[in-house]
C-alpha cells in the first residue's frame, strides 16, 4: 500500500479515502507497540531524518519511536535556532541532508511554509511535523484516530475546538481533517484569537465556551501560544482562564460521554483545570499513544513497502 502523494504537508487537500487509509493502517500497526519486542523489520534499511527547528518533546520522540519500531534508522537534528540565525539557510541544510540520501525527512519549523521549501526541492518524502501557525497534520490524524477509537466514528460528531485558534496549526489541521471526515466543527475563543475568514472553512464560530461545548461530543482545548504573540492579545492569563479554562462546572451542561482532548503540552490551570486533564473524560494520554501509531502508518505508507 502506498499513499498517492510524495509528501504530507497538511490535511487541506487530503481526501477522505486517504485519511481513512492512514487511520486504518495506524490501527493495525498499534498492536506492535504493545508487544514485548516492539519492533518489526518493515522499514529496515530506510533512513528517517527528524529535522526539528523548534523545541519538541512528544512529536520528536513519537516520530523517533515510530521509525525505530519499524526498524528504520532515525536521525535527530534538533536546533532551537532558525536557519537564518544559525547562518545556514534552510535550502543549504536541505541540500546537505539530501547528499546523505535519506528516505524520509520529518520537519518541524517555526515558519509557516518551511516544509514546502523542502518538498519542492528534494526527492525525499517530507512529513510536516508542524510549521508555524499553518498545519500539524500528524497531530490531527492522531486526534482523529483517538476520536474514532473512543466514539466509533468521526462522521456525524460535533467537535468544539477552544482556545488560541489564530496561532494554532493544530486547529487548522483538525478543521480540514474533521470536516473532510464528516464532523461538525465549532471553534471558540476570544474574537481576537479567531483568524479572519475562518468561517469560510466550514466551521461555526463561538466566543462563549459554554455555548461552544453544549452538546459537543468532543472538546479539544488548545494551548495559548505565548511564543507567537507579537503583542499582548489579552490582559492576563488569569483573565483568559476566567473565560476559557475548561473546568468541572463547564462540564455540567455537556454530554455525559464528552471526550476531552488536548494536543499538549498542557498549561494546567490556564486552558484546562488539572482535575479535568486527569479526569475520566480525558483522552490526552491516549492521544500520545496514538501519535506513535499514526506516525508509523505514515512512514510506512510513504515508503510504499509491501508487508
Amino acid at each position: 500500500m502506498k499513499l498517492p502523494r510524495k509528501d504530507i504537508l497538511g490535511l487541506k487537500d487530503v481526501p477522505r479515502d486517504e485519511i481513512a487509509l492512514i487511520l486504518d493502517t495506524a490501527e493495525s500497526l498499534k498492536e506492535i507497540s504493545s508487544r514485548p519486542i516492539k519492533k518489526v523489520p518493515t522499514l529496515r534499511g530506510k533512513t528517517v531524518i527528524n529535522l526539528f527547528y523548534e523545541p519538541s518533546t512528544r512529536t520528536r520522540t513519537s516520530f523517533e519511536i515510530a521509525a525505530k519500531r519499524l526498524s528504520a534508522d532515525a536521525i535527530n537534528i534538533s536546533t532551537s535556532t532558525s536557519s537564518v540565525v544559525k547562518g545556514e539557510t534552510l535550502i543549504d541544510t536541505a541540500m546537505t541532508l539530501d547528499s546523505m540520501n535519506p528516505d524520509i525527512i520529518v520537519i518541524r519549523h517555526g515558519a509557516s511554509g518551511a516544509p514546502h521549501i523542502l518538498a519542492k526541492l528534494l526527492p525525499q518524502s517530507i512529513i510536516n511535523a508542524g510549521d508555524g501557525a499553518h498545519e500539524h497534520p500528524t497531530q490531527a490524524l492522531l486526534d482523529m484516530l483517538t476520536i474514532r477509537e473512543r466514539k466509533g466514528a468521526v462522521e456525524g460528531l460535533t467537535v468544539a475546538i477552544v482556545g488560541d485558534i489564530a496561532h494554532s496549526r493544530v486547529a487548522r489541521s483538525n478543521i480540514y481533517g474533521l470536516t473532510t471526515m464528516g464532523a461538525q466543527v465549532r471553534i471558540c475563543g476570544p474574537a481576537m484569537m479567531i483568524p479572519r475568514g475562518i468561517e469560510k472553512l466550514g466551521v461555526s464560530v463561538f466566543t462563549s465556551m459554554d455555548e461552544a461545548i453544549a452538546n459537543a461530543d468532543v472538546i479539544m482545548m488548545l494551548r495559548i501560544q505565548f511564543e507567537r504573540q507579537n503583542n499582548v492579545m489579552f490582559p492576563s492569563t488569569r483573565e483568559y482562564a476566567r473565560n476559557y479554562c475548561l473546568q468541572a462546572e463547564n462540564l455540567r451542561h455537556t454530554r455525559k460521554d464528552v471526550l476531552i482532548m488536548h494536543p499538549g503540552p498542557i498549561n494546567r490551570g490556564i486552558e484546562i483545570a488539572p482535575d479535568i486533564a486527569d479526569g475520566p473524560h480525558s483522552a490526552i494520554l491516549d492521544q500520545v499513544a496514538n501519535g506513535v501509531a499514526v506516525r508509523m502508518a505514515l512512514l510506512y505508507l510513504l515508503s510504499g513497502e509491501q508487508e
Binding site: 487541506k12 487548522r172 483568524p195 479572519r196 475568514g197 475562518i198 472553512l201 503583542n231
Partner: peptide, 20 residues
Amino acid sequence: TGGHMNESLVSTELGLPGIP
C-alpha cells in the same frame, strides 16, 4: 508590525500573520 501578507482567508489558511 509582525505581519507578512494581507490579512484574509488566505493568511488564515497559510498560517501567516496578516496585515489588515
